[in-house]
Design a binder for these strands. Structure first.
Length: 218
DNA sequence: ACCCAGGTGGCCC
DNA sequence: GGGCCACATGGG
């Protein structure tokens, strides 16, 4: 791991390069939750199809999803892949949410740390999904770590171990504790990773070129 | 015909 | 604690 100025500097460079990303792309907190579950190891385009299906059917609704037959839900979300487990887990989560809290607004009144543990205890909600929900639906300052984050900062020369909580703690202790910045930084990392950390030929135009440890191989 | 995508849980040691 | 594996669709 490296020092904090670098993390903030990288944020500034990415923000200058891309501008605001307006994440999370969703109309409601519940849509964030659904998207967070459906996008697990899945291309976002496929998730958009699934969410569109839910909307068109009038089923992007916590009570509707709680009551629908499981095979009906599977059909609607099929484009997002892993649709049997996701249908099961999404439905279970909706039922838990209604039973324990009654509503999303009420769920987000719980103490953030307690809520995070509650989310993590649900089957199908791991640390990234939990933090996506807490940050983008609940506006709580939890930094979201995903495979892009690990890949990007590995290439930038940060010595990152593979432990989710360690990485999250590293970010949260070295950038301002600000929900807007957390939201924007994660979105910028994803944007940057898609542009530059998959296709090597684009490296010449990379805004973080000077910081990238891959440069010595060029 | 591969490979990848905004992960997670189960099982093994 | 880490190393595999299943889970499934759609696009390059």
């Amino acid at each position: 791991m490296r020092k904090k100025e670098n993390l903030n500097e990288i944020y500034n460079i990415l923000y200058s390069h891309y501008g605001p990303r307006y994440w999370w792309p969703a109309d409601t907190p519940f849509e964030v939750i659904v998207g967070a579950i459906l996008t697990q190891n899945t291309n976002w385009k496929n998730v958009e199809k699934a969410i569109r299906n839910l909307k068109l059917a009038g089923y992007l609704d916590i009570r509707k999803i709680s009551k629908i037959r499981k095979d009906g839900l599977e059909e609607l979300i099929k484009p997002s892949g892993f649709y049997r487990q996701k249908a099961e887990r999404l439905q279970n989560f909706c039922r838990l949410l209604l039973n324990e809290y009654g509503s999303i607004e009420n769920m987000f009144r719980e103490r953030p740390g307690d809520l995070r543990n509650k989310l993590l205890s649900q089957k199908g909600i791991g640390p990234e999904t939990a933090d996506s929900i807490l940050l983008y639906a609940g506006n709580f300052p939890f930094f979201v770590i995903d495979s892009y984050t690990k890949r990007v900062f590995d290439r930038l020369g940060f010595r990152i171990n593979d432990n989710y909580e360690d990485i999250r703690n590293f970010f949260e202790s070295n950038i301002p504790k600000n929900v807007g910045i957390y939201k924007e930084y994660h979105a910028l990392i994803v944007e940057f990773a898609k542009d530059f950390c998959r296709k090597r030929p684009l490296c010449e135009k990379c805004p973080l070129k000077k910081k990238c440890s891959y440069n010595r191989f060029h």
